[in-house]
Write a protein that binds this DNA or RNA. Structure first.
Lengths: 122, 122
DNA sequence: AAGTTATTGCAAATGCATTTGCATTATCAT
DNA sequence: ATGATAATGCAAATGCATTTGCAATAACTT
């Protein structure tokens, strides 16, 4: 049976506190503010569990590699700030699905990343 | 001084023959049809040179990892076929830059991937 | 044609992200 | 409170993509 550990609880809290996609190192760093002994292997194990549980999902970031973010946000995209290296969720979708469908191709889904400078860094 | 080898020439030809982003393995495989002894390390070395020369550029594919494609195609996006695993260039851009710019963010660039089934696999 | 040396092929080495073995610790059912 | 065992921390091990050392080969200059 699955047990609730303080490290798993801490990891979940990290995602609730930071409403944006996080990398493993960020989860470890922020998680240690809650559980100082938190180990990277433990983070990996729990991220896997949270993904299996459908609480998190993995995203492939073009610059940062693998990031994790909470599920259930609906269709949205991401903005990567080249200054602070953080990735933010973007509400809405600026992609015109019709224009996006080329001759003969069946478009099932899409993924968009915007790059630039975030409000804090501007 | 830089020498023109048959393997470098072959690698360039591979990209000219297949007008789509290619992964290392594809370059090796197609390249060997032109130069049977072609080695993977040689491909890596030449891809690096072609990038330095501005003839190729690296793209981070959300599913396939690193792909390489010819430069000079102008702004465009990519379509990944989940059936055949190939990635195609898409002409035009279905992203509304204005809608894409959230409050306070400065958008400098963007990257879009479409997922679905290509004409050959449909 | 001959010599110089950039490039290749091959195998071993790196660099990283992620996983795993194991002794120790902590959670939870009883 | 106690026992059974899931989860943790740590370090070593994996798995991959990419790089590198080196002897052999091939491109060019003369």
């Amino acid at each position: 049976m699955r047990r609730n550990t303080i490290q798993k609880t801490a990891i979940e809290k990290v995602f609730r506190q930071h409403e944006r996609p996080l990398g493993i190192d960020e989860v470890v760093t922020y998680g240690r503010e809650l559980v100082k002994s938190l180990n990277q292997a433990t983070v990996y194990r729990n991220l896997k569990i949270l993904i299996e549980d459908g609480w998190l999902e993995r995203i492939a970031h073009p610059v940062l590699g693998v990031l994790y973010e909470r599920t259930g946000k609906g269709h949205h995209h991401h903005f990567y700030c080249r200054e602070c290296d953080l990735t933010f969720d973007l509400p809405g979708c600026p992609v015109n699905e019709d224009d996006a469908t080329p001759e003969g191709f069946i478009v099932e889904d899409h993924e968009l990343f915007l790059f630039g400078i975030c409000p804090s860094c501007d």
